[in-house]
Every structure is written in structure tokens, then in C-alpha cells.
Design a protein around this nucleic acid. Structure first.
Lengths: 338, 338
DNA sequence: ATGAAAGCGCTAACAT
DNA sequence: ATGTTAGCGCTTTCAT
């Protein structure tokens, strides 16, 4: 494999000139530049990433970190991952995927200490996420998709949960619903500080109050069994809420299916609105779910942009951005039964 | 940040001794080893990954490559990704996620030329996948999840499609089904050489013949619309097949939903068996899908193991392994209507 | 059992 | 506008 010196020899210039042609950090005469570029092409030269990194160049790798989850992740989360990776690539960075248990902060420390990555992007952050302190101490650039409670110095991009809650509740209010059940994440996840769950609960509670609607909560695990449990709980209410707002896709889909099996008709008997779920998943179930969700692509792209800006020192602002969610009315929501 | 020389100084040994303590490639007296280890701990030392890479150590990064897909990927595919990453981590490697259009072979070349990654794991391989030649030419270790037609020298782990087809067809045969519709990938994807689609078609055709069953094919895109088209096509058959075998999850789920909307009862009117779909997706729809699929975790783990063995030169065998799929009978398959 | 020293292929400060 | 050179922090060969 050709090295920089090979290129320099072939082009008849000094090695550093080759470097400067690549980095553009020096003005090079057109004639020289052309010769160097040609030599690079002839030799099929690509700089060695390790040498660049060691010599102190901009390290071209970002890490995308998410805690390992027993429930697994959905296609919605994968969309975030692929979108982040694509943006990173577009900006000239590689993306290291990286996951370990939330509590295993050591793993994170060792990655950072290896100096391999120029910055870290956090996914699935909780309101008191221990990863932030590790990153702060390591003085490595980081940004997060989602935000902790203590977020003054944190660069983040997050869903605008207040707006999402408002959209969902107002949609249901317009359809005449007066009482709602909220399928929350499990108590365990709530205790762990699941930000979207907590912020969504707050948002829909406030919006419901503003609309004079009543609201009850149903915490279940994010899987088909959780969905069935949510239905069991739902059926015990008297009177039953006429609408359900669900946060996680496997639980919400599970509720939808269990309700159908139990002879409930959706949306004639119960309306269902799903929050934070991607289009693909929303259309995988029947009836297709009405959703209120931000574009995963927008969130991921914005977050990567913010991280890279910080890495490249182009901006010292603490970028904090809420992305406005979009409501897509599909088949699972309709006029409240009389 | 502490370097190896700092550790050496603190421990009162030469820098190379520190290296040898880390690599274990030299016998070191217990006394020395203890002192060095203590110094490493005191200084919170972690070797610089770039320096290691440059100096020719084992490069600790694997790349996981998949072509960008317009249809997006499902949670099933994400399971492969996370499983591969976890195994890589367990073996001491990082995992770089990497994706670009199948035809953009240049992107792959430049990654490889950067010498950043020790090996490449390919996902979503097609039967005449251009990526293999790039990798062969680059003389970089690689392995694939799935296999091309020309696979003599390719280390791969793949689903045992023949067995999957047999399991699905025999299950349906036992339930009394005599005629089947196969929801295939789009004609475009078939032309692109989608291995699972082609091998599954072959497998179920052969198994169906062995069972004296008739089989028709229905190519559609892998999304909800494709599922509806599959139903439209299905309804036009006279007589209608009593069972449907579907390959891709969004299309198969779409068929399921469209059939339900159209008043067909599943499995009373039509049985549906889904191939290659993960449990999570299978249980997201209603009725829950009977599936025949390999464990994504097993496939991914095995593939990463094979790749790492090759990288570390522990084995020069061309590991080629088919993973036996597992049938999970859920609610979408039942006795054929009379 | 340990040390010394020659690279690995770059970047960037210091020349001219 | 270009060349020279001192590192970056390791691995590994050659010494002892």
C-alpha cells in the first residue's frame, strides 16, 4: 500500500507538500497540486488513518453509544442509528457503534481513553444519565439525542414532548374524547429516569387538564405481553377511557392487537395515538397507528451536526434544540363513542 | 493523559517492558509485572489506539457494512447489528457501522485503504455482490452474513434456507394446505440478486413439489403498500391458495392487515407463515405470525467469531456455516379450510 | 528477564 | 510556495 512518501517521490515534491495538498492548510501552486493529485490517483493513495490520528490530525471517528436494553430496540431506533451514521459519513466521519449496560461506566471510560474517537453521541439518555459525567471528566466532545434534567452545558437535540403531548391531546379532544389512558413505560424504567416517558407524562397531563380531560396511567413493559396487560388494566376501568395514548411501540401495538382480539373495535370503541413511533412501525399494525413523532432523521442529523461543529471548534455555543413532532393521522383514532 | 513512557518511569522499567506486560508476548517476572500493573492503574493508563494501530499491532476495529436501503431496515436487522456489535466487543474489537449504496464500491475501497479496520463483516449480501471483489483485492479479512453464489473462498454464516422452506411447507402440509402463494421481494430486488429471496423461492418450490402442492409467486415491495398489493393479487386467484408464505416483514404484515380489513379471517381463511422475521416483529402484528427464522444472535455471533478467527490467524479454514432456523408456531397458521 | 532503538506514516512547527 | 525535521505513542527486533 502506497504511503505519503511514495506519492511525494512520484510527484517530485516533499512529503509535507503532499500532506498540505490533502489538508489544504497551505497554498500550493496549481502545477504542484496537479502533479500531487495525479500521483495520488496513480498510486491509489489514501492516508493511513492511524498515522493521521497519531500525528494529531482531526480524528475521524464518532461513537454512537446506547445502553443495552433487555427489551431490544425497534426499527424506529434503528432509523436514528442509520440516519446518524449517514450524516457522519457525509461530514467525513466514521461511526463507531457502541453499547454497554448503563451502569457499566468503565466501558465508556476505556473507549474514551483510547483516544480513538473524536466525539461521542449519546442515545437513550435518562434524566440523570451517568454517562454525561464520564464524558465531561474526559473532556471529550459529546452531544446527545434526548436530554438529562441537568442539561445546562449539554449539547442536545430532543423531541419537543410538550408539543407532542399537546398535539395528541388536542387531536383527541377534537374528536370528543374526555378521558384517556396513558400507556407508560414500566415502573422500573420510570425509576431509571426514562426521559421521554417522564416528559410525555407531564405534557399530556398538562394538556389534558387544559382540556378538562381525565387521565389515568398504565405502566407496562414494552413488549406484546405488556400490551395485553395494558388491555387488562384498561378493561377494569369503569367507565373506560375512550382513548389511549401509548409511548412505546411494542406495548402500544400489543394493546392494539389485544383489544382487537377482545372484540373491541378501534377506533370505534377506543382511539389509540402512539407517540414517538416511526412511520414504518405505525403502518405495520392494523389499524395503522395515528402517531405524533419527530422525524428520526432530523433529530439524528441535527445532533450529529451539533457534535461535529463542536469537535471542529466552529461553534462554542451550547446547541440545544427541540424538534417539533409531526402528527400523522392514520386509522387508529376517531370520534369518541357516545 | 498518561503515555506508556509515564508508566515505565513510574514503575522504574523500560517502556518496552510496559508494552510486553500489556501484550503478554514476553515472560515478565512477577515482581516487575506487579509494579507495572500498579503504575498503569495509578496513572489510569490506556494505550493509545492510534499509536497501537500505527505500530502494527492488531487493529481493534471491525466494520459492519450494509448497503443503504430505500425501504429502510427492520428491527430484525437491527438485532443482527446489535448482536454483532456485542460479540465484537466481547472479543475486544470495536464495531464501525458502515453503509453506502451497493453500487458505490469506491466508498468501501477508501475505508479499507485507510487501514482503519482489521476486517469487514458484510450484511445483506446479494448473490453477485460486488463488495466481495473489492475486499478480495484489498486483501483484508472479511466474512459475510449471507452468501454470494460464488462463495468458494468466502467465510460466511447464513440461514439454512432449504431447511427453512422445508419446515414452512411441511407445517402447512400437515395442516392440510395444498396450494400456496409466496410473497417474494420486488422484481427489482430479485434482479439485484437478493439471496434470501432466491434461495427461499427455490426451497419452498422444491418442498412444495415434494408435497404435491401448487405454488404461485407474488413479488411486491417490502412495505405496507406492497402488502396490500399482495392481497389484491391473492384475491384474484381462482381458486385462492389457502396459505401464504411471506419473506419480508413489512410486506407480510401488510398482507396480514389488508386481509383482515378485507374480511378474511386468519388463519381460518388463509394461513400465513413468515420467513426470516424476528420474534419481536412477529408479535407486533395480529394475529401473531408463525415464523421460521434463524436466531439473528446466533448468526451474528458466529459470523463475528469466524471473522475474528481469521484476523487473528487462528484458523485458515474457510468457515462456511448454515444456521438451522427455528419454527415458532403462533396464531397466523392453522388448518386449511375445506 | 529486561533494555535500547528503529521504525510505523503522518502533522505541523520551523525553516528558506 | 515549498522543503526539512521533530515528534505523536506505540510494537518489535536486536542486544545483553
Amino acid at each position: 500500500m502506497a504511503t505519503r512518501d511514495d506519492v511525494a517521490r512520484l510527484a517530485g515534491v516533499s512529503p509535507s507538500t503532499v500532506s498540505y495538498v490533502i489538508s489544504g492548510r497551505r497554498t500550493i501552486s496549481d502545477a504542484t497540486k496537479t502533479r500531487v493529485l495525479a500521483a495520488m490517483r496513480d498510486l491509489n493513495y489514501t492516508p493511513n488513518a492511524f498515522a493521521q490520528g497519531l500525528a494529531g490530525a482531526r480524528r475521524g471517528i464518532l461513537a454512537l453509544h446506547f445502553p443495552t436494553s433487555v427489551d431490544g430496540y425497534s426499527s424506529t431506533e434503528f432509523e436514528y442509528v442509520t440516519a446518524a451514521m449517514e450524516r457522519a459519513r457525509a461530514l467525513g466521519y466514521h461511526m463507531l457503534l457502541w453499547s454497554n449496560p448503563m451502569t457499566d461506566v468503565m466501558g465508556m471510560e476505556s473507549l474514551v481513553a483510547q483516544k480513538l474517537v473524536a466525539g461521542v453521541l449519546l442515545m437513550e439518555v435518562s434524566i440523570s444519565d451517568p454517562r454525561f459525567d464520564v464524558l465531561r471528566r474526559a473532556k471529550i466532545p459529546f452531544a446527545s439525542i434526548g436530554r438529562p434534567d441537568d442539561s445546562d452545558d449539554v449539547i442536545y437535540v430532543d423531541n419537543d414532548f410538550a408539543e407532542a403531548g399537546r398535539l395528541a391531546i388536542e387531536h383527541l379532544a377534537e374528536l370528543g374524547h374526555r378521558s384517556i389512558m396513558y400507556i407508560n413505560v414500566s415502573q422500573q424504567d420510570q425509576a431509571a429516569g426514562n426521559g421521554p416517558a417522564i416528559r410525555t407524562a407531564r405534557a399530556i397531563t398538562e394538556s389534558a387538564q387544559a382540556q378538562n380531560m381525565s387521565i389515568v396511567e398504565m405502566p407496562v413493559e414494552n413488549n406484546a405481553r405488556g400490551g395485553r396487560q395494558a388491555l387488562d388494566g384498561y378493561l377494569k376501568f369503569n367507565p373506560r377511557p375512550s382513548a389511549v395514548v401509548g409511548l412505546k411501540e411494542f406495548a402500544t401495538a400489543g394493546f392494539l392487537n389485544a383489544a382487537g382480539m377482545a372484540g373491541l373495535s378501534i377506533p370505534a370503541d377506543v382511539s389509540v395515538v402512539a407517540l414517538g413511533i416511526g412511520d414504518r412501525s405505525a403502518e405495520m399494525v392494523s389499524p395503522a397507528l395515528t402517531t405524533v413523532a419527530p422525524s428520526g432523521e432530523v433529530i439524528a442529523h441535527t445532533a450529529v451536526d451539533a457534535l461535529v461543529e463542536q469537535i471542529e471548534g466552529r461553534s462554542s455555543d451550547v446547541i440545544q434544540q427541540l424538534v417539533t413532532p409531526v402528527m400523522v393521522i392514520r386509522e387508529s383514532s376517531g370520534i369518541a363513542p357516545v
